[in-house]
Design a protein around this nucleic acid. Structure first.
Lengths: 224, 224
DNA sequence: CGCGCTTCTGAGGCTTTTCTGAGATCTCCG
DNA sequence: CGGAGATCTCAGAAAAGCCTCAGAAGCGCG
């Protein structure tokens, strides 16, 4: 269960342990909760099973290369924002990194300030406390955990209902597989049908149409 | 929001008309639909009233500075992705740009390739990997398992329908023998006529003409 | 401690998808 | 033209996926 004011969670995949330690401290000071992996294989495992708001991935990694790790994550529908760190700084390298699915690419050596600013830019959308996420004609009030209907009526959501709807609303029109939602919103030990149940709760409160089922793939909001 | 078939729309705010012209062409070549503003005031007006998928804003602008423009857009809840271009390349400048609300910050002079890659990375976020296979006038959305018709209408396919159509669409104009399709898309234990049945389903949903029968040889799409 | 709210489980029923098979229709070629 | 084989169409059974919901268990508060 997350705290009321959850810290943004970062996955740091970096084989240089000294650098990893320094970055870990830096991120902790900025209020991030960091988890670290020191090779690509471990990074892949954590990335697939863990719940992160942003990932920092070194390009040169043992066992599984950073870009290959990234491709595999993307291939398995992990849409978390990723910043790639690399000593390879040619334009071609940067283009390759971005096209492999990176959201940003920072060349070593870099200044801590810039890394932090770029992470803020990536994580900003997910942690803008004061704002609402659009939800079709309605909106999701991120502060008060309420859905605001067009007429101004407000419907309060429970913690899990809110987390689920927020996760869906962060990527409207994307299809969110059950397994991904279960990993992100619920504990891994929960039953297989927990997502179904909470979708049912949301639909009961907000109407049938808020969440669309895509048979065999998952759930989706904001479909046209 | 952008339709899958429509071109991504870019707002370009750049006072150097020569550079603006070059960028406009570059973006047009890449399939973007560009609208240009040459000062901050005009950029603000367009940004507030127009619908764009991504904005490219020069930092040094007449009338209204680029960062100030960005702040005003953000203050009025414009959440479009923004890439800031600037000749100011110090870390402090970059941090200032990102913290003003930019999603990315590219220092002049830059390579066209990198700008395009970074724009792709930004545009990707909103229509998360809307990769499509061409399908005559329509397209096959690989993420959503949907066929997107020219007018933007979407037809959802079931898992097997999608696999079959994708297999055909991967090599358009090639003739795919029944046996090959049966092996690739269905279990080996299925009956001989399973492919026929699913071709029938596809035709029923999408129209007679999507799949052509080549008597005695197999099926084909995208025939001339 | 008891009450109300939330979370989670699991079972039963419903819907969609997948697959089979059989008759109708078409194509090729002698 | 006519027949053999290929293809199309489709109803319905079986399987898989999804929805609904009651109730148990947990949590927070007075």
């Amino acid at each position: 269960m997350r705290e009321a004011v959850a810290k943004p969670r970062v996955l740091l995949v970096e084989d240089d342990r000294e650098l990893a330690g320094m970055l870990g401290e830096l991120l902790a000071d900025e209020g991030y909760e960091t988890e670290a992996a020191h090779d690509g294989q471990r990074g892949l495992h954590l990335g697939l099973t863990g719940r992160y708001d942003v990932m920092v991935i070194d390009r040169r990694l043992p066992v599984l290369d950073g870009l290959e790790l990234l491709r595999q994550l993307r291939a398995r529908a992990v849409i978390t924002r990723v910043l790639v760190l690399s000593a390879l700084g040619d334009v071609a390298d940067r283009v390759a990194g971005l096209d492999a699915g990176a959201d940003d690419y920072l060349v070593k050596p870099f200044e801590a300030e810039e890394l932090l600013a770029r992470l803020r830019a990536l994580a900003r959308r997910d942690f803008e406390g004061a704002e609402c996420l659009p939800l079709g004609a309605a909106a999701l009030d991120l502060q008060r955990h309420e859905v605001v209907l067009p007429r101004g009526e407000r419907i309060t959501l429970s913690g899990r209902e809110f987390e689920l709807l927020r996760t869906l609303a962060q990527r409207p029109k994307a299809i969110h597989p059950r397994a991904a939602l279960r990993t992100r919103v619920f504990a891994d030990s929960t039953g297989e049908s927990i997502v179904d149940t909470y979708v049912y709760y949301l639909r009961r409160k907000l109407g049938r149409d808020v969440v669309r089922t895509v048979h065999g793939l998952g759930y989706q909001i904001g479909a046209v």
